Simulated assay, not measured.
Amino acid sequence: MSYPNADKTIELIKELVEIPSPSGNTDEVISFVEGVLRDLQVGTKRNRKGGLIATIPGKDSDQHRMLTAHVDTLGAIVKEVKASGRLKLDLIGGFKYNSIEGEYCQIETTAGEKYSGTILMHQTSVHVYKNAGKAERNQDNMEIRIDEKVHSADEVRALGIEVGDFVSFNPRAEVLANGYIKSRHLDDKASVGILLQLIKQVKEESVELPYTTHFLISNNEEIGYGGNSNITPETVEYLAVDMGAMGDGQSTDEYTVSICVKDASGPYHYGLRKHLVQLARENEVNYKLDIYPYYGSDASAAIRAGHDIVHGLVGPGIDSSHAFERTHRSSIEETTKLLYHYLQSELV
């Protein structure tokens, strides 16, 4: 049995993370995914929120499946153009200021101009500020230093930069020879890459899926409502493919597929969870069951929106989520294997 080529998946993930796509400004990356699917002759449509839905007809068109992964990422938005010529930020998504200190970034103006910058503490220089190491990392103290000759708000505005402009973070993606992949935004572009490679295999090998299957590439997950709509009435099962969270007390690691039992929204569907575990055992897929205490997914958003569906959550294990993320080729492979068998399995 052959599975999608992991090297190709990782190449695709690297391409994806290098496309800026903070929640609210995702058209470029959605267009990229749209192009990949067009080349595969997979029918797609955009929803009004800007997400992308791909559909592969199955043997049974009366009952549907939906899988989702999201291309929107953490980011920021310009809150204030400061008199000093620097920018104050407002965060997009759930993360802390300390995780972006010193990061290179890109500011995109409404007109589409792009400028380089660095996110710094105002009190960075230890030769000037006695409290450089003790000052709180917060909105008041952190700012963007623009890589242009600007020393006033008027000079910044002359560049076209204004309140509301989007800020994306340099992913600094690296693929190491020993199998590790480290980059910002592996949440959740690793999963998007996996789904696209699975769709490619299904199309190229003419695999007949048992049920009509929709793939939602959502674009507002980081702010809570990416996958809560455009679910057909025929949809029975809804599986979010998103990162597995690692840390103290967690069983998730960077080498297996994580199957989520419960997150902040409550338990996931017990029957679907057992089905996923059974598929993993039958097909020698290495997996871990886990609980993510401060987490919500597109699947939980769909449940909250009132959809009558069976919902689940799986994904590759990601270390240091919403910060300096890392996973391993093994986790990409195990997640791919589980999803390959899930797509061809019976409904629970």
Rank of each mutant, 00 (worst) to 15 (best):
S2G: 10
S2D: 14
Y3H: 13
A6V: 15
I10Q: 06
E18W: 00
E18L: 05
P22V: 10
D27E: 15
I30M: 11
V33F: 12
E34M: 07
G35H: 10
V42Q: 09
K45R: 15
T55A: 01
I56Q: 01
P57L: 02
K59M: 09
D60A: 11
H64T: 07
A69W: 07
V71L: 09
T73K: 00
I77E: 06
K79N: 14
S84N: 11
S84P: 02
S84T: 13
D90C: 11
D90T: 14
G93P: 05
G93A: 12
G93T: 11
G94V: 09
S99N: 10
C105I: 08
Q106V: 14
I107C: 08
M121E: 08
H122V: 09
T124A: 14
S125Y: 15
Y129A: 10
N131V: 11
K134Q: 15
M142G: 01
M142F: 06
I144L: 07
I146Y: 05
E148H: 10
K149M: 09
K149N: 13
H151P: 00
G160A: 12
I161D: 02
D165Y: 04
L176H: 13
A177M: 09
S183N: 01
L196Q: 00
E208V: 04
T213E: 00
H214Q: 12
L216N: 04
E222N: 03
N228K: 05
E237C: 03
V241I: 12
A245F: 06
A245D: 05
S251Y: 11
D253F: 02
Y255T: 09
Y255E: 12
S258K: 08
I259L: 05
I259C: 05
C260S: 08
K262A: 06
D263I: 04
S265G: 13
G266W: 03
Y270V: 09
A280D: 03
N283E: 03
N283W: 05
I291A: 06
I291L: 09
Y294F: 14
G296W: 08
R304Y: 10
A305E: 05
G306Q: 01
G306A: 03
H307M: 11
L313C: 04
I318P: 02
H322T: 12
F324N: 15
S330N: 14
S331K: 03
I332K: 03
E333G: 06
L339D: 00
Y342G: 04
L343E: 06
Q344P: 07
Q344K: 14
V348P: 12
